[in-house]
Design a protein around this nucleic acid. Structure first.
Length: 908
RNA sequence: GGGCGCGUAGCUCAGCGGGAGAGCACUCGCUUCACACGCGAGGGGUCGCUGGUUCAAUCCCAGCCGCGCCCA
């Protein structure tokens, strides 16, 4: 016997272990079934489960469980990524607590520490995923730093390099002065602030009494200015183009150039150009052949010693500027500035400019400032040599694939975001100046020539060929962006570069499920590398889900203190409740506002289901051997079977279209509002009645429908459904997770449906009037039915017992002409229902009620009359629509007439 | 400034060319033999505003107002 409520805590762990140990999560590469593949977006190894994870992994698990039940060979590939910067920071912080730096340990020693840390703390999220019920193929779990995946990184790096799609270049990168590494554009957060615009006067070299006023938000960079730009059509400055100004403080003579970048409307119309410290200025420098001077060191402090000068090559790259003898040319900053932090330098520059009378004015200026998303410090555009991926070239195939629908975004509007980014993509800086990650497979010879190979041996061999003798090589110390290895995930996890059977079978995946925030970081890059390495899309569909927010719609964040921990919700309401809530709220294109109340509602639903099962158990509703749902006799049973069949169709339709909310809603509505609210109540008289055949059929039907419900709800609520399945079949039904999802559509029964819908309406009508007339809930009344047609008579005959029970009637009688004095009257179809309420009924109240009903019908009639009186409507609307409106008018008219007759009788 | 999305019942949201829906909240009633994490009955909406297309607009189009996100 089942307990009174479902206690999630007592069953979840055991059931999960049972599933996992039975091997049902595993893909079956040897089988004949068509694969269904989802590559789990690998969570960060330092991560722990937050609400966003809970959503994304719930939806993936729903899909995986659904398709597994449909008979597909489901592969859900789990794993995690090594999160280069984040992990290195975590481990460094730990070391710091012991007073040790990574430099004390050395590179190899530090990396050992990271692996130690991973062994201890790296499995957190995998445990939490299990708590969430995630049915991933755990023995296949991969980590981006695994040997195989690392080999894949080296292989594709070498391939891309040979194809010229990876190259080394000296250009501006986003430099994080705290972490001492380059980061990609995507790792830079643009924050809105109100800064200042300082206007400085630069004296003309040939006439120091004349000035050019330049505006800047970063005065300290003036130390690296190599030009001033004005707009070519700006008449104010036309005569100055080609002349030079003398840079204050430094004394450098720099040209005045004409470039569209200078906006005549903005400030003075003249703009200082610092090509080594601003992305826009870099482009101006390239167009105008300007010099570059890198004035900052890796801490973004002003440099001490001599600073090299660079120039642009005709190809747009940069190279050191040398004298005729090939000796690099340098400059040195004024001594007072050397070693100053960038912000201290700013103050000093302004003070000195002001003291020299060269400060024109200072304005407030709304602007965006770049911050490192990991370090939180202001990012410095910095001139340095890095490895880049030619993203523009690699983007071509993915763009085509989306244009041609070979990869489909759901909802489709994310295509725009994807196209927008992919068509304007910049070179991707992939090298990082940290230790934890895949070290760049490049070795440098004595003259700086790079040998890019998969191993040191190959590099040495290549170098020997190149130099004609064996030489010593130094490996590039940098590592690759974590996303570089994550981009290989859809095929590296399947064994690539080996041509494994798994790779042939499970690539490409069916769907990638993720949030929009990593479309660029990850989705786009998987598509680039997938096409490059595999010649095909990495997945057919990309389902982009919403962000989970708090109940007020605010983004959850630790600093706001509004984070809801999914594990707390699981603890309070059970995993099924959390999962069902997330799925039911996952409507396309709208963010999810999570609140405890919603989860509580889902918990209540689980309890409702539990109690329905308990009812079945108490009434000996057990699955019958050889039960054929198409062969049942009783209308009631044919009706609920048809409804269950339709519900299965709706759930499947929802899931097939990634409409999780529709799917969850359909299962919920059928379970609660059809099965529990009506069928169970209808079944009661039969289950306790004398007719053994009817009882047996109803028991078997109830068990069958409950089984269907468990199947339909299993993807959403795996624990309670599995537990009930095994309890109700007493272990004879196997595991629900491995049960077959039903085909639907073959069990429709329109006549049974019409009949039972009529019964429902009859009971509802009587209940409504009882309530309105304040009939005591326990009081049983006789029901008189006037003008009943053949169908009505037959239906009353068939369902009399349950109508009496649910409408609380003492009897049902057919009458020709009834004593209506003191009776409440209702119209249902052709028949009029009378509830004699002599002594109870307030005649005036009843008249008013009938009057309201009549008015409502007449309002409807007026609306339909108007529509049907419109010649345009009759001429242009589809005939079936016109017919439907006519029918509705007829119905309303007849109902109105019967209500009027009832009113007349009351007044007689 | 560019792009995307959203304004429907008190709240959170479905619906998206032909009868305004759900959950929660609210009101009233209920020890009805599965369930008070429940049962029954209700109240509540010029479907942001203004135009247009259409026989017909909450739904399609345009503009406006308000809100959010992304990018510059």
């Amino acid at each position: 016997m089942l307990d009174k409520t479902f206690d999630a805590k007592t069953v979840e762990n055991d059931l999960y272990r049972q599933w996992e140990e039975s091997g049902v999560f595993a893909a079956n590469p040897e089988g004949n079934a068509t694969p269904y593949t989802i590559m789990m977006p690998p969570p960060n190894v330092t991560g722990s489960l937050h609400m966003g994870h809970a959503l994304t992994f719930t939806l993936q698990d729903v899909l995986i469980r659904y398709h597994r039940m449909r008979g597909r060979d489901a592969l859900w590939q789990p794993g995690s990524d090594h999160a280069g910067i984040a992990t290195q920071m975590v481990v460094e912080r730990q070391l710091e607590a012991q007073g040790v730096t990574r430099h004390d340990l050395g590179r190899a020693g530090f990396i050992d520490k990271v692996w130690e840390w991973k062994a201890q703390s790296g499995g957190t999220i995998q445990r939490q995923l299990r708590a969430l019920g995630a049915s991933a193929d755990w023995p296949r779990e991969r980590f981006t730093m695994d040997d195989g995946l690392s080999a894949a990184v080296r292989r594709i790096f070498v391939m891309l390099h040979r194809d010229g799609l990876i190259y080394r270049d000296r250009r501006l990168v986003n430099w994080d002065p705290k972490l001492h590494t380059a980061i990609s554009d995507l790792e830079v957060e643009q924050r809105e602030t109100t800064g200042k615009m300082w206007y400085m006067r630069y004296p003309l070299a040939e006439d120091p009494s004349r000035f050019l006023v330049v505006g800047t938000t970063r005065p300290e960079t003036m130390l690296g200015d190599t030009a001033v730009a004005v707009h070519p059509e700006d008449e104010r400055y036309a005569d100055l183009i080609g002349k030079t100004v003398r840079l204050p403080i430094v004394g450098r003579e720099i040209p005045i150039v004409a470039d569209d970048y200078a906006d005549p409307e903005k400030g003075s119309g003249a703009v200082k150009i610092t090509p080594a410290h601003d992305f826009n200025d870099f482009e101006v420098g390239r167009r105008n052949g300007l010099r570059l001077i890198n004035i900052f060191d890796l801490n973004a402090a002003l440099r001490g010693g001599p600073m090299e000068l660079y120039v642009f090559t005709p190809e747009g790259h940069t190279e050191p500027l040398t004298d005729a003898a090939g000796t690099p040319l340098t400059e040195t900053l004024p001594e007072a500035y050397q070693g100053l932090d960038r912000f201290a330098a700013r103050d000093k520059v302004i003070a000195e400019i002001e003291a020299a009378g060269l400060l024109e004015k200072i304005d407030d200026n709304p602007m965006t400032v770049p911050y490192g998303d990991r370090s939180g410090v202001v990012i410095e555009p910095w001139l340095t040599e890095q490895w880049f991926v030619d993203a523009k070239e690699l983007a071509k195939e993915p763009i085509k694939a989306v244009e041609e629908g070979r990869t489909r975004f759901v909802p489709t509007h994310w295509e725009n975001t994807f196209f927008e980014w992919m068509r304007n993509i910049q070179p991707w800086c992939i090298s990082r100046q940290i230790w934890w990650g895949h070290q760049v497979p490049a070795w440098f010879g004595p003259d700086g020539t790079a040998f890019v190979e998969e191993s040191e041996e190959e590099a040495l061999a290549a170098a020997e060929t190149h130099y004609g003798k064996a030489v010593e090589l130094v490996r590039d110390p940098d590592v690759l962006d974590t996303w570089f290895s994550s981009a290989l995930w859809p095929f590296s996890t399947l064994g690539w570069p080996e041509q494994t059977p798994d790779l042939a079978r499970y690539y490409p995946g069916d769907v990638l499920v993720t949030g929009f925030d990593i479309i660029f970081f990850w989705v786009a890059r998987m598509m680039m590398f997938g096409h490059y390495a595999m010649g095909d899309v990495p997945f057919r569909d990309v389902y982009i889900h919403a962000l989970v927010r708090d109940a007020k719609g605010q983004k959850m964040s630790k600093s706001k203190g509004n984070v809801i921990d999914p594990l707390d919700l699981i603890d309070q309401f059970g995993t099924d409740a959390l999962r069902f809530t997330l799925a039911a709220l996952a409507a396309q294109g709208r963010d999810i506002k999570m609140s405890e109340g919603r989860v509580q509602g889902s918990r209540n639903f689980a309890t409702k289901l539990w109690n329905a099962a308990r009812f079945c158990e108490m009434n000996d509703c057990r699955p019958a051997d050889g039960f054929d749902p198409a062969a049942v006799k009783l209308t009631l049973n044919r009706w609920i079977i048809a409804k269950a069949d339709a519900a299965a169709g709706k759930v499947a339709e929802g899931l097939d279209a990634y409409r999780f909310n529709d799917a969850a809603g359909a299962a919920y509505a059928f379970t609660w509002n059809t099965f529990c609210d009506w069928f169970v109540e209808f079944a009661k008289p039969l289950l306790s009645g004398e007719d053994a055949a009817a009882r047996a059929e109803t028991q078997a039907t109830a068990a069958w429908v409950l089984g269907r419900i468990l199947v339909l709800l299993h993807p959403f609520m795996p624990y309670v459904t599995e537990h009930l399945w095994q309890a109700l079949t007493q272990g004879q039904g196997g595991q629900l997770i491995a049960a077959r999802w039903p085909d639907s559509g073959a069990l429709a029964a329109p006549e049974a449906e019409a009949e039972m819908d009529w019964v429902v309406e009859l009971i509802s009508t009587i209940r409504s009037v009882r309530s309105e007339m304040n009939v005591p809930p326990g009081g049983r009344l006789p029901l008189l039915v006037k003008d009943a047609g053949a169908d009505t008579r037959q239906r009353l005959e068939t369902h009399g017992a349950l109508i009496e029970r649910l409408a609380r009637l003492e009897s049902i009688a057919l009458v020709d002409d009834a004593e209506t004095k003191g009776a409440a009257q209702m119209v249902l179809g052709e028949a009029t229902l009378l509830l004699p309420l002599a002594g109870v009924i307030d005649i005036d109240q009843e008249k008013a009620r009938l009057g309201r009903d009549i008015a409502a019908q007449e309002k409807e009639m007026a609306k339909l009359d108007k529509k049907l009186g419109n010649p345009g409507f009759l001429a242009k609307a589809p005939p079936e629509v016109v017919a439907e409106q006519r029918e509705r008018l007829d119905e309303a008219t007849q109902t109105r007439d019967r209500l009027s007759a009832a009113l007349a009788r009351l007044e007689a």
